[in-house]
Write a protein that binds this DNA or RNA. Structure first.
Lengths: 182, 182, 182, 182
DNA sequence: TATGAATGAGCGTTCATTCAT
DNA sequence: TATGAATGAACGCTCATTCAT
């Protein structure tokens, strides 16, 4: 019961903050907006999290786990290595066309965190290293793991290109290069 | 006389703001810091620029022109199309290793501007369209302009990958893919 | 006209803050109370003063000048050195009996400023050094300036004793010792 | 068992709070810091003490008993009345030179307690009345008890003078006056 | 009794912008 | 046109205390 309540507060904050951080950005989201939209009192928020940055970390971890899962699922729809990789890019193509898609959770954050927020940067790097590893794991069976990072660079180019141009073509272009590479 | 002064004020603000926006980010840089470090008084700043966003626009335009120039110069060091393209990536490799390099000016900004700042987003898109066009112009003579956008996606992947991992390898990996593609 | 307004804001803040700092203490007085009772808007206050501590400094300087003046006046009512010194203690006796007297401005502050507020402590020390100097200057003509610090210690004992016991007797006792010493 | 635990909690809180109140001041020490550094959970603290002020009272009483003891010990090192009194000031001279000395426990507090904290002020007065009584008791055998309060004022002047000037000379000066008086 | 969770009020400070001259 | 002064709203965070279990 106690934990339920604590968790409900934490969850509530993380859920609200996640939505706001994602839609508006970290800097453009104030603690006050988080408490208003979550209904959690300010001091309770600061009992659950010591700083705004800690909320950001929770957001990154939550979104990170979901992203890992989604990418793996997309890959595992296929059996052959090349299809798995292409499956990831197919997933991206669908993803970026969703109307509530505002770009990659992690790339959105990385440019607006202050210099001294090394923990945040490290977490994002860690998340992205997971994607590199995913590609490497898929490609190892066909002895093409040395292509993992090249494909990863295309993955990032697809995401940020979509953000800049607000269009699907960067993802499609990246997929096409992957298709040629493998 | 007046115009000189006005222009010197504008330049002064743009120079200072550019440095700060680039090093700290747009949101992490306050108007007060800009006036302190530029020596321009606050109301003069607001005579020269109507909003903070206008200063941002001036920064993007200034940095954009310089970037265009630098990329063209890097390409024009070579004569053959493929070499020109690779020359651009070679330039990136050197660029990201400079100690005062904090990432791509434009990708740094795009994620932290508020939703309603369509002008800013449009400007960044325009800037990046210039890069696509550059690749297309280089590749047209050898009838490979349809690869321009694929190479552009690698260009962006290189930049943002460098930002995330704080390392040169994403740029090198992107260059390698370009080498294979052409 | 401009300066009038600026000064009126500064003066207004200093006056209000002085009263509140003196009556309630520095820590027990919030910026919000200062702005409410002075009528000055919060951001105007922070244009005039960079920090709360700066307001404290202005208070100490203002009160310090007034105190210096009052002590000198009290001393100069007399011509003989001993009478001058006793005059200072007579002034104290009257002072501490005033109904709006809450103790020495400076001793009130010294114990509640944080460790790192060295500027504040230095200012208080400087103020008190002025009192020591006053006694020394009075006593030099009769070649008793070596007693200045002993009398100064009695001066402080009188003030803090009055604060602790909320009574005039510590001042009277100090005066009596001075009478014996000279 | 329960009482042991309760007492250990009380002692723990008092010890931690005493250290913090003394080193940082009452206002500059928050309940949160006390619970963090004592390891006692917040609600247990509020079971043992009803308010922060009650903790302050416990601190004053504890420190008061220790101070009484120390002063008596210092006096009883001697047999003659004058020596006893001078012994107290000798003790002060050593005391204020200790590196973890931050001023008189009681004078440190008196200026920063809110107006309405009459209990606290009364306790401090009571503590200091004990010092006056000590001097009186020492001086009664030699029929000089009428000097007790004059010596007490010097005692306070020594302490607060040391606080202001961060130096031993005020204590030495006070001792010298005592020497002359007796 | 003991406690983990929750509270509302307030902290000092900074934001981008506008006004009066 | 240029400027020093002024603005209201919001910032992230901490306070001493109380509640439900």
């Amino acid at each position: 019961m106690r934990n339920e309540r604590k968790n409900s507060i934490r969850r509530n904050i993380i859920d609200t903050a996640s939505r706001l951080f994602y839609e508006q950005g970290y800097g453009n989201t104030g603690i006050n907006q988080i408490i208003e939209e979550s209904g959690v009192v300010k001091s309770s928020l600061y009992t659950a999290f010591r700083t705004k940055e800690e909320i950001l970390m929770a957001y990154l971890e939550t979104a990170g786990a979901a992203t890992d899962e989604a990418l793996k699922t997309a890959a595992n729809k296929h059996t052959k290595a090349k299809d798995k990789v292409l499956g990831v890019f197919d997933f991206l193509i669908e993803l970026v066309q969703q109307k509530d898609y505002y770009g990659c959770n992690f790339l959105n954050i990385i440019s607006e965190v202050p210099k001294d927020a090394a923990v945040v940067r490290r977490q994002i790097k860690k998340q992205k290293d997971g994607v590199r590893r995913l590609f490497a794991e898929i490609l190892t069976p066909i002895q093409k793991e040395d292509l993992a990072d090249e494909i990863y660079v295309l993955f990032e180019g697809a995401l940020i290109g979509n953000k800049v141009h607000d269009d699907t073509w960067p993802v499609t272009a990246a997929r096409e290069v992957v298709n040629k590479l493998l």
